[in-house]
């Protein structure tokens, strides 16, 4: 049994390394230069944080944490590798998009992310109810889920929409993975229930894993190529 578990462990890490390398390389758009070292450092940091959560977190949710890490890596590795943080948004880019288009893109992006938003809301609701049942302080437990929303003004009033969105996703990734690994029991119960509900949907749940790849990577001035394409199309239509 122990041998089997250690085999799983090795395969998981092998897979995560391979996936991180592939994601970083596929989405890397710069030339071979010092930026590569930044990306490497970022990836190593992410892997270390993941290792901490998997090894020192609660053993009962290890499987769930592995899935969550894999899922959030899909979002956060490419977005950094594509290098939007290194990009300078030119004046022409700013004027090309304009506030109206930016807001439309934000709405389009929210619409595209609807399946995940719905899951996130039901997770928050489940967590709140779980805490209420155990007569703890539900507000305190659910509060971290609202913290990344403090970035919303940044998204609305900056010209770097994509960067702010990727930071927000990064924050949510950290909070959810960390919360599931280390926070109170209600987090673990809610997360298990949520993943069970998703798994119960059968093969359709795989689409939830594949779908984010279409958005990636997050960009600098606009959010993603996909949402911009749709925004331009809608803008032209109306």
């Amino acid at each position: 049994m122990k041998k089997q578990s250690s085999l799983d462990h090795k395969i998981y890490w092998g897979f995560l390394f391979l996936m991180t390398a592939a994601l970083s390389l596929v989405y890397y758009e710069g030339e071979l230069c010092s930026k590569m070292w930044w990306i490497l450092a970022y990836d190593v940091l992410l892997l270390i944080l993941s290792a901490v959560c998997i090894h020192y977190g609660k053993g009962s949710v290890r499987k769930e944490v592995r899935y969550l890490i894999g899922f959030f890596f899909l979002f956060i590795v490419p977005s950094f590798s594509a290098g939007p943080l290194f990009e300078q948004v030119t004046e022409s880019e700013k004027s090309a998009m304009g506030m109206g288009k930016h807001l439309l893109e934000l709405a389009v992006f929210a619409l595209l992310m609807l399946p995940y938003l719905q899951i996130a809301v039901s997770f928050g609701k489940g967590l709140y109810q779980q805490e209420k049942v155990s007569e703890a302080s539900p507000q305190k437990t659910v509060l971290p889920l609202f913290l990344p929303l403090l970035l919303l003004p940044g998204i609305l009033f900056s010209s770097h929409y994509g960067i702010w969105v990727s930071i927000m996703v990064f924050c949510y990734g950290c909070i959810i993975v960390y919360g599931t690994s280390f926070a109170g029991e209600s987090w673990q119960i809610t997360m298990k229930e949520m993943l069970q509900n998703i798994r119960a949907k059968g093969p359709v749940s795989v689409l939830l894993l594949i779908y984010p790849v279409l958005f990636l990577p997050f960009r600098s001035s606009y959010i993603s190529d996909f949402s911009r394409e749709l925004t331009e199309w809608l803008w032209g239509l109306f």
Binding site: Q4, L7, D8, H9, I11, Y12, F15, L18, M19, A22, L23, V26, K63, R66, Y67, G70, L74, P78, S205, V206, L209, I210, V213
Partner: peptide, 16 residues
Amino acid sequence: KHMPAALFLIVYPMIM
């Protein structure tokens, strides 16, 4: 049995 996150086998080619 051997792959703890088997579903990612379907996700992985998507990035290529």
